[in-house]
Amino acid sequence: MSLTTALARLLIFPGLLFAVPAAWFFLWVERKAVALMQGRIGPPFMQPFYDFIKLLGKDVPVREGIGGLLMKAWPLLAVSSAAGAVALLPVLPAQGGFQGDLILLLALLEVPSMCIIAAGFSSRSIFGEIGSAREAVLSVSYNIVFLLAILSIAVSQHTFRLEALAGLPATPLRWLGVAALLACLPAKLHINPFSLPNAEQEIYAGPMTEYAGHELAMWELAHGLEWVAATGLVATLAAPRFALWWLAALAFVALSFAVVLLLAVLASATARLAIDTTVRFYWHCTLIFAVLAISSALIMRFRS
């Protein structure tokens, strides 16, 4: 991949120019779906855009010293890494990519959550620290399942290249991995029943408690981009193959949309669990699932 195509992918498609409206759209779909489930009309179509612009126009409290600089840096780092993760998604077939881009995508997907942990601790707010501690515990428990699920898919199909993975036919093992991924997404995107780190009202706003104005707008944007990247990853692995490029792109977008709807329905149907229940869920139930997936993937690999 040359520098020009890499820049085009990062900035235009499927990078920032495409991903930012997509992020707002997904945030709206989530809120609207929850509203419809509760029998109300819900926010207007442009609501995430209004929120973002309004936050850009608000004052930011003056913070001094290295702590203040760090607090400014975390949201920018989160946004740029989430945008980079989106840019790696093979939305259009035959777009390029390189061996090992799956590993880079996983690493970039992990950066926003690390930024949230660091932001909560550097804000020095007690609520931020509680939220960060919860995020750290949560990410340790769901990430093992998340990584094992992806690893089992990659190992069974002999490649760490996203585009090659997307092109290969789906096996039963792949569906098992996708199901494990879906189980991790609510925790990764901080929605019910695993909305523990931000836990609205319960611990004020968690790691975001001290953020205001354009910094908060960047966090919102990073969250939206995480939605696009995470649902896009599932769509890449689960979308059916089509020869026509526009049909493939359409299938990708439709599948991401379906995943967002599924997660929104789950979020509105459940209440927040306690941290110990959540951790137990990931360690007991889904870890067994993921270990089964990876061991069968390894066996398949040595047999073939």
Binding site: D51, P61, E200, Q201, I203, A205, T209, A212, L216
Partner: peptide
């Protein structure tokens, strides 16, 4: 567009 926020900063 109303949302109840947990933190006065928001």
């Amino acid at each position: 567009g109303v949302l109840l926020q947990g933190s006065p900063r928001h």
